[in-house]
Design a protein around this nucleic acid. Structure first.
Length: 556
RNA sequence: GCGCCUGUAGCUCAGCUGGAUAGAGCAACGGACUUCUAAUCCGUAGGCCAGAGGUUCGAAUCCUCUCAGGCGCGCCA
């Protein structure tokens, strides 16, 4: 079954061009030592250049010892494709193709037939992919630094799922290091403080107010009873309580943000067996050695700058040791790709993790790391100061409550992950044309309004779509047809921001249509066809917004 | 010092595996609602694609170097 009409046509065009070359050679009009493996065809930037264009004649000119335009003429002469209405030669030797409109009408029918499934592809071939993201330490609430990675991971997962991958979303909980104990100590101090003791908070503890809230919860649960217990036990209870409390908080923040994970992987599960196993595997292969009382991994053998300590001289494993074991576990679970979404501050870690993957005997590209650059919050055009050290970070929840979930999700995803992102809070909560989220949602609401204004007994059934010939209608139909390609591109490149660009372009095309073409007219035939078009457009808006995890409102 | 990311219109950014006259939004200016939602649309203006070399039919895109900004370079997690 056809899911992507544009892609089908593109393939037929390439095949047609190959056939034209062969035909020309057979007739002796063209001499080629070999036929090209891959023919490039693309949608031209300029509308005037037609539906598709190819640089084939330019590419082959020197090999055919022929002027590009002359070669183009020969190709066009031999080309036989019934969906091509016109092929003409332009510029230095491009061939521009103008298609018959039928494919656009066919695509509208395809949209209405597939409904919510329009845009779904077999491109990923069911390949099992894991995307690990957020994975923040459960020692404090998620802040805006985590938000961007959270949305990128979540939407990339949705996109790849739609493109036909079997995607699993995972959160790695760093719940084993000594930072958990520090959280427990911090909580215990606040607990005693709340029960009347004078406490001076030492330097190396978590001083944020959220710790007081956890401590209050601890009092609710245990009263003063902890004070009667031995210190070790106090700390243990406090640590576990604070950990669970923080984890619940994180899970809740993410759930409210529309982000659900398939699995939550606790680092504790790796200690000590899996870590020992991972080290044993590498030792067997000869990549482990001892030096200065520590155990090292020979990362430089796989292109890293330095070898890395995995067991410290005091006998404790480093963070890398656990991460090694974790990635071994992931690899053993049989994923074809492991995609990790990391903040830019961790990018220096990429070479050693790729080294680890390679050392375990897998292709280093099995692991893909998407580095998400930093976020700066802007309010009144000025940077909102944020410093972890000063404890003045803005939480994920605060921003989401201020600007709303839809705007937050859209904003975090609308720029390339490679670029730093200035998050304009005032713009995000502005209910105006300036706000790109509303611009897209408004298109959907407008469609709903049109449909509501059409009498109940008027339907698009039996519509003759060939009356849809206005430029605005053609533009809209083309954009609708590009959607599956956008999904493919975004999935293949792991770049989710293309979807917001597309959503915005689609909205522009719709608003243009709205201003040029009335749906409800005196002409029933025309109204019927436009109704058909508008229903298809609503479906695609719904699918796009759904892909972004953003609501598609009926009214605004 | 080394590594990664970025540098495109006044501002924020697109520009896919190299293609034709480099685009969008905002801001500025001028227009369009007795008509399905004006949270919309149309038009005008705005550019040495940081700089210099190279690769080729053709470079914002690929390579090298320089400059500027961000982030990293632990027996921290």
């Amino acid at each position: 079954m056809v899911k992507n009409l544009l892609s089908k046509i593109e393939n037929e065009l390439k095949a047609g061009l190959q056939a034209a070359l062969k035909s020309a050679v057979a007739k002796g009009n063209l001499i080629l030592d070999e036929f090209p493996d891959e023919i490039t065809v693309e949608v031209p930037r300029e509308k005037e250049h037609g539906d598709y264009a190819t640089n084939l004649a330019l590419v082959l000119a020197s090999r055919a010892k022929m002027a590009p335009r002359k070669l183009a003429e020969i190709i066009v002469e031999e080309l036989e494709l019934d969906f091509v209405e016109k092929a003409h030669i332009a510029g230095p030797g491009f061939i521009n193709f103008l298609f018959r409109k039928d494919w656009l009408y066919d695509n509208l029918r395809l949209i209405n037939e597939l409904g919510d499934h329009y845009g779904e592809l077999d491109y990923g071939k069911g390949e099992r992919v894991q995307i690990e993201f957020v994975s923040a330490n459960p020692t404090g609430p998620l802040h805006v630094g985590h938000s961007r990675g959270a949305v990128v991971g979540d939407i990339l997962a949705r996109i790849m799922e739609t493109a036909g991958y079997d995607v699993s979303k995972e959160y790695y909980i760093n719940d084993a290091g000594n930072q958990m104990e520090i959280l427990g100590q911090s909580t215990l101090l606040r607990y005693r403080e709340a029960l009347g003791e004078d406490i001076v908070m030492p330097e190396n503890v978590y001083a944020g107010d959220y710790v007081k809230e956890i401590a209050n919860g601890l009092i609710e649960k245990h009263g003063e009873s902890l004070l009667d217990k031995p210190e070790g036990e106090q700390l243990e209870i406090s640590t576990e309580y604070a950990y669970q409390s923080m984890l619940d908080n994180i899970k809740n923040d993410l759930a409210v943000f529309g982000i659900e994970f398939d699995s939550w992987f606790s680092e504790r599960k790796l200690h000590p067996d899996k870590i020992e196993e991972a080290i044993a595997v590498l030792k067997e292969k000869g990549y482990i050695y001892e030096k200065e009382d520590a155990i090292w991994f020979a990362a430089t053998e796989f292109g890293d700058d330095k070898d890395r300590v995995i067991i410290k001289s005091d006998g404790a494993p480093t963070y890398l040791a656990a991460d090694m074991a974790y990635h071994l576990d992931k690899l053993e679970r049989g994923f074809a790709k492991l995609i990790n979404v990391w903040g830019a501050d961790h990018h220096g870690y990429i070479p050693r993790m790729k080294a680890v993957v390679e050392a375990f005997g897998y292709d280093r590209d099995t692991l893909e790391v998407i580095v998400v650059q930093m976020v700066t919050l802007l309010r009144d055009g000025k940077k909102v100061p944020m410093s972890k050290r000063a404890g003045s970070f803005v939480t994920m929840q605060e921003v989401n409550e201020e600007v709303g979930i839809d705007a937050a999700r859209y904003f975090y995803i609308m720029r390339s992950t490679d670029s730093h992102f200035d998050f304009d809070l005032d713009l995000a909560k502005e209910e105006s044309a300036n706000n790109p989220v509303y611009y897209v949602q408004y298109a959907h609401a407008r469609i709903h309004s049109i449909l509501a204004n059409i009498e109940q007994d008027f339907t698009e059934e039996g519509a003759d779509l060939t009356v849809l010939t206005d430029e605005a209608e053609i533009d809209l139909m083309k954009l609708l047809a590009y959607f599956p390609e956008e999904v493919k591109l975004s999935a293949a490149s792991r770049e989710p921001h293309h979807i917001t660009s597309y959503a915005s372009e689609l909205a522009t095309a719709f608003h243009g249509f709205y201003n040029n073409c009335r749906v409800i007219t005196e002409d029933d035939e025309l109204s019927r066809a436009r109704l058909y078009l508008v229903r298809a457009a609503r479906q695609v808006f719904k699918n796009v917004l759904n892909l972004l995890g953003i609501t598609a409102p009926d009214q605004m």
